[in-house]
Design a protein around this nucleic acid. Structure first.
Lengths: 140, 140
DNA sequence: CCTTGACTTCGAGTGCGCTCGAAGGCGGAC
DNA sequence: GTCCGCCTTCGAGCGCACTCGAAGTCAAGG
């Protein structure tokens, strides 16, 4: 079982040391990170695995306070798995909805890109009018 | 050619009146919105179409300042279509990267959900251990 | 012994994107 | 005439998630 300094944990997780301390302060860790003889933090593999999950939840848009709620549930031990499942499933739905929305918006932006491409290809062939370029095309 | 009060524009766009004024103040509109006799804003269809594009750019994560850069380009008229295209294409790439990342993270979260489902289905069949529940599974 | 550098705590500061409230103008219904 | 409702400007405030800096501790290297 290896352990890591906060600088190593930062390098591995991709977070800054400031953020790692901030997460711990803010109750996002399952328990306070262990300390070595000098009072320095020693991150365990379990800590890093947990931080990885936190990062995934954060990167998919879960607010800090909800990550903390989840951490609270895990910390309070066995017996609330159904609640944890609800929380994760709720988040999953939100993420899927967000993916669908972003994909839809991207489609409209793509059509806009198409307009510019057409226009640039047409340069020298016909005169340019700017009216079609101000909004998104009417098919949206 | 119809025109709309700020309240109507808010209802149509899904933004608040506060946000509509804020966008205008912040240089996100192509030009100041027209005013009626009483000094009240009158949004045109062109304005609403533009606001729709702004909303799509914002919803896909484009920062306000970059939307403003794009608005500046459109405002300055014809001749910079290539630059606009670059901006939109750059954004498109960023959005695709973000979609891929979120999808990947979601996969890891899904596996975690699977763990809870298995665990809940196994209730009464075997004893629970909590170790597997603290992190994401090792296949990530 | 002194410097270097990695760490500690604590609290304040930053950037973003709104969000809100105060104070006032104007037009129409009663 | 006065009340209502919608609008105006301006500037301050807020929530989120960091991000940073100051001041101090400690161990090892030269």
């Amino acid at each position: 079982m290896s352990s890591y300094s906060i600088a190593e944990a930062a390098r591995i997780s991709g977070l800054t040391t400031h953020t790692l301390r901030y997460y711990e302060r803010d109750g996002l860790m399952l328990r306070p990170v262990e300390r070595g003889a000098t009072g320095h933090r020693r991150y365990s593999d379990t800590d890093l695995t947990w931080i990885d999950l936190v990062t995934r939840l954060r990167s998919t848009g879960m607010p800090i306070r909800e990550v903390r709620r989840y951490a609270d549930l895990v910390r309070s031990g066995a017996g609330n798995e159904a609640e944890r499942l609800d929380l994760l499933r709720g988040h999953r739905s939100a993420v899927l909805a967000q993916l669908a929305e972003v994909t839809d918006h991207l489609g409209a932006i793509d059509r806009k890109i198409g307009i510019y491409v057409d226009r640039l290809e047409a340069q020298g062939i016909g005169p340019l009018t700017s009216s079609a370029l101000e909004g998104v095309d009417s098919s949206s």
